[in-house]
Amino acid sequence: MGHQNTLCIGLDCGSSFCKGALGLNGEIVGLASRPTGWDVAGSAALVKAELLKGYDPKESLVRVVATGYGRELIKADKIVTEITCHAKGAELLAPQTRLVLDIGGQDYKAIATLNGQVISFQMNDKCAAGSGRFLEVILKRLEVDLSQLDEFLAAGQAITLNSACVVFAETEIIGLLASGVSRADILGGVVASLAQKIASQAARLDPTGPAALTGGLAQNLGVAKALGQALGLTVRPLLKGPYAGALGAALIALDID
């Protein structure tokens, strides 16, 4: 696959982070990421520079594939949607995946796949319920860091939240805190509600397992577990899941002539 000495770069710029993957001689040899900020093109260029550190781009061909929300702003040889890229990336990270659940900063996607190819997909509408943003707002309000989320989830019971809307859920949570409900229980409820929302979207695809989690929450065991329960399928958390889109893009770059 690919060409000798071609440096294949996948850049995936989402609403929160710009992720990059570098492939050389058919192998992934580097990953990098940084916050997207306001300047998508600038952040993408920095991620690319970081990936190319130690390589001499003059001595080899460089092929760039851009994906993600900001894909059209990035200088690239090809632009591909994050849906196609996540499907390919997830297959690389977890072979034989049949359902990819990508939770992004702004939105979430459920993608039915076969051998890394997209069969069909579902995406949320304008509403932020079920997106990473929802969890982010709540974590901030509870002063919990994302890295601590699993600990909290393991310690608590999932209470039932009545609202899936970010704005209303925040109000509801203020009330719950006032009546003495623990942060662990609240977070359990928040993650369960997020999982419900995504699962109901994914259910339209008639999914078969195994499923894999990609995007910013991909490493989170508690989120994977909640999604697994909501879907009735095994959902694999992926250590490199946040890079799935960038990896998929790098794989596509390998195939450019």
Binding site: T81, I83, D107, Q117, V118, M123, K126
Partner: peptide, 15 residues
């Protein structure tokens, strides 16, 4: 929803 429509349409066309 122009951005969203674009992603949906483009992903469909890619398939």
């Amino acid at each position: 929803d122009v951005g969203q429509l674009k992603t949906r349409a483009a992903a469909f066309i890619e398939t």
